[in-house]
Amino acid sequence: MQNTENILFTLAMIGYFAAMACSFLFVSVKKDGFAKAGEALQIVSLALHTGALVLRGLAAGRLPMTNQYEFATCFAWALCFVSLVFIRKYRFPVLSVFAMPIIFLIMGYAAMQSRDIKPLMPALQSGWLAFHVSTAIISYGAFGVSAALGAIFLLRGRIRENSFLDQHIPGEAKLDLIAYRSVCLGLLFLTLTILTGAIWAERAWGSYWSWDPKETWSLVTWIVYAVYLHLRLRRGWKGRAAAIFAVAGFVCVIFTYIGVNTLLPGIHSYA
């Protein structure tokens, strides 16, 4: 079963790469066909990726969300899923130009991690695991999409008048609004992640908040996006400033995910 999972994972990765290539061709050759092919490839790769995750879950007898490899591959899956939802909902194929490289990089990071299926340590044997990690994955995926949208916003301002891009990239106000909605989705799920994590920590470690680096950085990320929302309201920080904030916020997310685990010791060392 693990062999099939590896094959599906590799195929998904190749598919993501091909989808990324198609999206690049779409904006450089300016042919709509590449956008459609890229989207189709993204959907097929997501299906293969889902298959790999299901097989891993079956082989492990649990949800595949407990170590660095599993979280990374789920993170890439969520980013792909959320970006597809946004692409279809807002008819916005250019989003994949920025989302696919992030997805591909995270898949690459996952590929470098150990894929051994190990039984769960006692602290991880809890029904809260599924809620806590899946909400974190959706949250990180949504923040990833908001960062991609922020990057599009910033680049859009630098590109001279281009009828093709004008046709395929929403106007600044809409772009800003979609990024805002993506941040809202991310923040809502991050709150849910922190809340479910606290309830679980109370049962497993006896304290719902221990200022562990992972907890602390989740709080820092939460505050960063809370500041983003307040500044939008108070100072009208929309457009460029909000786009910069969305990209900077995602750096914080990545540090919470990878940086904390590799640089700071804590009780979340397995995550």
Binding site: P213, T216, W217, I223, V227, H230
Partner: peptide, 24 residues
């Protein structure tokens, strides 16, 4: 004011981030 709230949030976030780098 919201300005005061934002200032506090920024300081708290920075304090948390820096303190997490120093083992407590």
């Amino acid at each position: 004011s919201m300005g005061f709230a934002v200032a506090l949030l920024v300081i708290l976030a920075a304090a948390c981030a820096l303190s997490s780098l120093v083992e407590q």
